Simulated scan of single mutants.
Amino acid sequence: MATPLTADTLLAALRAEGVTVQEHPGWRTHNRNHKGAWGPVNGIVVHHTVSTGTTGSVALCRDGYDELPGPLCHGVIDKAGTVHLIGHGRTNHAGLGDGDVLDAVAAETSLPAPRRNDTDGNAHFYGFECVNLGNGSDPWPDAQLDAIERASAALCRAHGWQAASVIGHKEWTNTKVDPRGFTMESMRSRVAARLSGAPGQGGGSTPPPAPDAPRHQPFPGAGFFTAAPNSPIVTAMGRRLVAEGCSAYSVGPGPQWSEADRRSYARWQQKLGFRGADADGWPGRTSWDALKVPYSG
């Protein structure tokens, strides 16, 4: 179990995984928290919308209806592969399900068949609604499946979870059949393959071949920067910050970590949506992965 990601951290994690994100007005505070707990969180539930069209599906999931007020999920994944963020916090997506399933997800072990509906899933799961009629014949485009994979992997990576933390609604409760049109076993295989590589790289049904060297510099750890290194990694980072319009440099960037590097990195964190102590200029894994610093050895 884990504390839910903040809205800023969730957004940064999705972007670091290469997800195309559209933020809808008010999504950061649109939730049902007044109706019950949000967290600790244990996993991700994938749904289909039983609807067509992006605009109408997003509106339905954002607003809900009389019997089930919105938001009905955290993000809507359309057929083009865009994740539309519409809520953050408790949302009306999972409903009641089997506590034994929750225990299995938390332990990342094999799922039992859901038999009881005795546990509040809205408190414990992130939810993605995917635009599809759910009739078994409505297609699932490659871009949409890729987005489901990436979005799921992004949250797993942010929490340190494995692919076993990603389930379908029909695996949570015996009252649902979604998602229909692909198997959750195949999606978990895709997520596992993606998690075996660096953020934003690889994925799919099989792991990609290993390159001679990674394209992007792995996060060297927070202690690397507090030790004021003199390293080509710092130069490469600075150049990426300049390219992102976050420069606070009067000269450089260069290999020696400096206050200008820290101020520039703070601008990058703020660009990602971090605030306060989370935008102090000291690199963290999520913001570093999103920056995509070229590999320097």
Rank of each mutant, 00 (worst) to 15 (best):
A193L: 04
Q217G: 06
P207A: 15
P199A: 14
G204M: 08
D142A: 15
P209A: 08
Q201E: 15
A164V: 02
S205Y: 14
P218V: 00
D146M: 12
S205E: 14
T226S: 12
G221L: 05
A164L: 11
R194M: 13
A151R: 00
P220A: 12
A158T: 07
G160W: 09
T173S: 13
S196I: 02
G200E: 06
P179W: 04
L155I: 15
Q201V: 12
A222Q: 15
A213T: 09
F219T: 03
P211V: 09
E171R: 09
T206V: 13
A143H: 09
M184N: 06
H169V: 13
W172C: 07
H159W: 05
A227W: 01
A192S: 13
P214E: 02
G202V: 11
A198E: 15
E171H: 10
E171N: 13
P207Y: 12
P220S: 11
G221R: 01
V177E: 08
G168Y: 01
P141S: 01
P218K: 04
A227D: 07
D212Y: 00
I148K: 01
A210T: 15
T173R: 00
Q217P: 10
E171P: 02
W140D: 02
T183A: 07
R150D: 09
R194W: 06
G181K: 01
A198D: 15
K170W: 07
P218H: 06
R188C: 02
A147W: 03
A153W: 12
D138S: 08
H169Y: 10
P209C: 00
R190Q: 07
Q217D: 10
S186T: 12
E171T: 10
S196N: 11
V166K: 04
M184I: 10
R180Y: 01
D138A: 07
P209V: 10
P208E: 13
R188V: 03
K176Y: 04
G223N: 11
P141T: 05
G221P: 03
G203E: 13
G202K: 02
K170Y: 11
F182D: 05
G160Q: 06
Q217N: 07
T226L: 03
D178N: 10
I148A: 05
G168H: 06
P211L: 03
V177Q: 10
S205M: 15
H216F: 15
G168C: 02
V177G: 09
H216Y: 15
P208L: 12
S152V: 02
W161M: 08
S152A: 14
F182C: 01
R157D: 12
P218C: 03
F225T: 12
G223C: 03
G202N: 07
E185V: 14
